[in-house]
Design a protein around this nucleic acid. Structure first.
Lengths: 255, 255
DNA sequence: GTCTATAATTGGATAGAC
DNA sequence: GTCTATCCAATTATAGAC
């Protein structure tokens, strides 16, 4: 099994741009594992691991577990294959290690919901935060999406517990907002799904967004336009009869 | 081609219901190759191709191009590997053949948008139609999603033309609705994205939906609840101040 | 058109030197 | 901890009989 990168990107040259950088926070994420670091030696080891994890995320998010060879990850991380297999027991261990780090990042914005907040503000903030994530870590979003689509065999347990519990807990908060009349009647889980879907879309389907809109979230103007529109749609809907702040749409180029 | 409902139920035994039928268009699509069909022999060949394509969709949508071997597709289609490779030049040819059929199906609901419609009805209908697709062909949705996430190397051209043109055309329709005051001010592409995202979510992330809500679109009650909630959110928003038809939420179990 | 056998390659994982 | 060399399983694709 397994395939070469070549077979996916048919029309592209080998050797993708060695750019990774960009993601300065990755270290923070992996610091979970670094736990009781301290000694400079530990640090170096964790750096090494972090570099490998970063490379793995980059490749797995684009080609999937089976679309990437251990060799390719090693090459991108600039370590030898054997060295990589010193840090991670095997390919799957590497893959799961990447995924675990993502789950925390992924669920973070939802945790912010709490009953005492103003629901409209909470939702507007959530949308912005999630779109920031989609902009800054699109590959994290994509890898998570890939895994979910394929039935999340490696995350099933976490989904069934951690995620389920969190959503149920927040569903109660939302339900409270509805019952107190501060939110229109809506089934909480569907609101959560709508929030996830509309925001992650811009990361997961960046290619499609680019094809259709000509821009992605990396364009600051498009980013703000997106935040604004998603907030409007979810909060006020597109129905003309809806009461809404009379925020006229600025004349914007839509390529 | 097209999918069986079976692909959602992940823990089931091999050999899904050999049902395919259902989509009579598959034959028409492959008729490209069949050229001047007609003879019963030609028909049998196309059946064979269709069975293989069906099996391929089922597997590719769950494991991706690289997660499935030609042998596995052959086994599921109940033909020998060599026989499969008689109908399709190679693995990639098979994969692309599956994808091409999907694009049409995928874009169909959007084509229905036309200026003379009432926007609210058009959007409500779109949501229902797309959710029907998500329910009945979840693996079609997923395979398309998989391909898009990975940058759609094999669909890039179609995306850049067919899809781009269609969306631009419908964006004008939406823009017209906004300008005539029949729709709240919204940037058309973002509305399109929101419609896609919220509806496909239920197919692509069926595992997550199952984990969180305890049900999927296959449950008729949950299906109607989903249609209702997505329509509300997109049309009227969740903001309590919105004018909305006073449709009280029926008391529903949310496991 | 379909099958069996097999060639040719890829890629995960390990052994063992340094 | 890191590297080179290598083993071995899995897979794509083809050859050639029927």
């Amino acid at each position: 099994m397994i395939a070469s990168l070549g077979s996916v990107k048919l029309r592209e040259p080998r050797n993708p741009p060695a750019v990774l950088a960009k993601n300065k926070r990755s270290k923070a994420v992996h610091a979970v594992r670094a736990a009781a670091a301290g000694s400079p030696r530990r640090e170096r080891i964790n750096d090494r691991r972090a570099v490998i994890l970063r490379a793995a995320l980059d490749l797995f998010s684009r080609f999937g577990l089976h679309g990437v060879s251990v060799d390719q990850v090693a090459e991108r991380a600039e370590v030898s294959k054997s060295s990589l297999l010193y840090y991670f027991a095997n390919k799957e261990d590497l893959y799961v290690s990447v995924l675990r780090d993502l789950l925390t990042l992924w669920l973070e914005p939802l945790r912010a919901f709490s009953a005492e907040q103003d629901p409209q503000t909470a939702i507007a903030n959530y949308i912005r935060r999630k779109l920031v994530l989609s902009r800054d870590w699109p590959d994290a979003s994509r890898l998570f999406c890939l895994e979910l689509i394929q039935g999340a065999p490696l995350l099933r347990d976490e989904l069934a517990h951690e995620l389920h519990d969190l959503v149920m807990q927040k569903a109660e908060v939302i339900q409270g907002w509805v019952q107190s009349g501060r939110l229109a009647p809506v089934e909480p889980v569907h609101l959560v799904f709508a929030l996830w879907a509309t925001t992650q879309h811009y990361a997961d389907f960046a290619v499609q967004v680019q094809a259709v809109a000509g821009r992605t979230l990396n364009d600051p103007d498009f980013f703000e336009q997106t935040v604004d529109n998603v907030q409007r749609i979810v909060l006020h809907g597109v129905s003309a009869s809806s009461t809404r702040k009379p925020t006229p749409v600025k004349k914007r180029r839509t390529p």
